[in-house]
Design a protein around this nucleic acid. Structure first.
Lengths: 121, 121
DNA sequence: GCTGAGTGCAACCATGTGGTTGCCACTGCT
DNA sequence: AGCAGTGGCAACCACATGGTTGCACTCAGC
């Protein structure tokens, strides 16, 4: 059984989970916005634009990296991070599919609750 | 300045924030899946399908309700909840727009970071 | 009116997570 | 070689959050 609801039959379901958690935090969203705006940036630079310490930014960047939303590569003594639209796009599609799925289900289900759920589907 | 990144210029940005947080929790997603599948259900019924207590379900339902993902209406002594695709659909669109926005920005930005561009810095 | 089912609320606990500070290692420039 | 800047731990703190239990209240049926 997949644990990502039902709409996303594709293998990308796991990635979606991380993306949702990562995007749920406002600081992280701000970080992504900053990153998308600058194209690339280091944790130190980013920290200068946010009301949090560099270490906090590093942690957030780690979460975003785990979610596949950003990627960092070392350049000399710096580590520059950049956004990766792929994961976001994948999640957007998953969500759109989920919304459509809900609508579809709502159309076929009436107002039953006491019933022990449909056996065949 | 809105705190929901930049892509969604519409007023729906606030709703998105709640949806993301609500969707980030696996139990909540399971709940939504159950709800979408049954059409309608009470917290007690839902609790029977999940490995958590009824009260835990009630709390999750409250979060989902605050996010606009579900709506509950009282029927006698029961409170039946049902999913509301609107908020999800809205968020899906926001996310798709954000993904497109990133791609757009990445196309125009090069690899600048060290440049103290903004005068405030 | 009594009883049973179901809801709502409050207290409480444990863990996760955001955030900070401190310190050390490494890299690059002079 | 020496100094300054940047990154990477690790420890630590505070609060939010998921989850539980207990109890009181309400609605439905007999």
């Amino acid at each position: 059984m997949n644990d990502t609801a039902t709409a996303p039959p594709g293998p990308g379901g796991t990635a979606v989970d991380g993306v949702l958690g990562a995007l749920a935090d406002p600081t992280r969203r701000r970080l992504l916005d900053l990153l998308a705006d600058r194209g690339e940036a280091t944790a130190t630079t980013l920290a200068g634009r946010l009301p949090v310490s560099r270490q906090a930014v590093v942690k957030h960047l780690a979460v975003l990296d785990a979610a596949g939303l950003v990627a960092g590569h070392r350049t000399g003594r710096e580590v520059r991070y950049a956004v990766r639209p792929a994961a976001l796009d994948d999640t957007a599609r998953w969500m759109a599919g989920l919304a459509a799925d809900w609508d579809r289900r709502l159309a076929r289900t009436g107002t039953r609750d006491g019933t022990p759920a449909p056996p065949g589907g």
